[in-house]
């Protein structure tokens, strides 16, 4: 493939040179005798010049023939797939579509190439955002794409989490087909609305059960506003592009520790209330309750 391309380039170049030299022959013929041929024997000089030019053209023609001879003709007609139908487009403004199509094809090709490179580099320099360390064999097995996953995979993950915690009730809503919005009710304590983007958690809002279940407005209670804030921090902490399902599972495990939001005293100071708020922070590793100021 690479060699073919090089030969094709050589052939195209020699055609270009031939055309340019043929053009200078015609220019010379068109101009006829010029002042710079002098007075003595100007006809002879002109003929010699023409001869020289024609020799160059001859040489170039030979080059072209050589180059073309070394090309391998393509086997059969090109299949353009559905793009052939573009030729049948009659409206003026759509006729340029083929060029755009080729451009976007080039772009995706480049993206594939670069992402493969980036993937290789990241694999050798892995960065761990979670505390859990896994063997490399396991990691390879669970490697999945994060952005473009089928709804079934997400569905399986969510039902898995639903079964994992008996006091977390999960209801799923899909305003946009692949990206579910999950409402997770944690006992009688609180509910959270979690927006997924593929396998990754994109947005979390924590509210009281009595409040509306939209993901755009904040809770009116200070304690849930604070928990929402902490959930965002945990969401970023557990985020791991290499193992998105593990990130979601760790997040839900951490989130589940909020079932003692009102009943557990702070591990550090031993009190329930600080600054009129209960212990709103849960340690990311030990899941122990702490006040915002005590952690």
């Amino acid at each position: 493939m690479e060699r073919d391309l090089a030969q094709l380039n050589v052939a195209l170049n020699s055609v270009k040179v031939l055309r340019s030299n043929v053009r200078s022959v015609f220019e010379s013929v068109g101009n006829g005798l010029r002042a710079d041929h002098g007075d003595d024997g100007k006809e002879n000089k002109y003929i010699i010049e023409l001869q020289e030019l024609l020799t160059t053209v001859n040489n170039n023609l030979r080059d072209v023939e050589n180059a073309v001879a070394s090309l391998t003709p393509p086997p059969g007609a090109f299949s353009l797939g559905n793009t052939t139908y573009l030729a049948q487009e009659t409206t003026q403004e759509r006729q340029a579509l083929y060029g755009q199509l080729v451009n976007s094809y080039k772009w995706t090709d480049k993206i594939r190439e670069y992402s493969a490179l980036a993937g290789n580099i990241l694999q050798t320099n892995s960065f761990n955002k979670t505390y859990k360390t896994l063997s490399t064999t396991k990691r390879r097995k669970t490697q999945t794409s994060n952005h473009n996953v089928s709804p079934e995979v997400i569905e399986n993950l969510i039902t898995g989490i639903d079964r994992l915690f008996p006091d977390v009730t999960i209801t799923t809503n899909r305003p946009f087909v692949p990206n579910p919005v999950v409402q997770a009710s944690l006992g009688r304590v609180l509910k959270s609305i979690i927006g997924f983007k593929g396998l990754m958690i994109e947005w979390v809002v924590v509210k009281a059960h009595a409040e509306a279940s939209d993901q755009w407005s904040d809770s009116r209670y200070k304690v849930f506003q604070k928990v929402t804030e902490n959930c965002h921090a945990a969401m970023c902490h557990f985020h791991s592009p290499m193992m998105p399902d593990l990130a979601v599972r760790s997040f839900m495990h951490w989130f589940h520790s909020y079932n003692t939001l009102f009943s557990a005293p702070c591990k550090r100071c031993g009190n329930h209330i600080h600054n009129n708020l209960p212990a709103t922070w849960r340690d990311l590793r030990t899941l122990e309750p702490y006040h915002e100021e005590c952690k």
Binding site: R188, V189, L190, A208, H209, A210, Y221, V223, F224, F262, S263, P265, N271, H272, I273, N276, P278
Partner: peptide, 21 residues
Amino acid sequence: EYRPCVVPVMCWDLMKEFLQG
């Protein structure tokens, strides 16, 4: 009244602490 919580057993200790405060 502690408005975010709806089950007395969960927040009684917390409210006791607040009241004694």
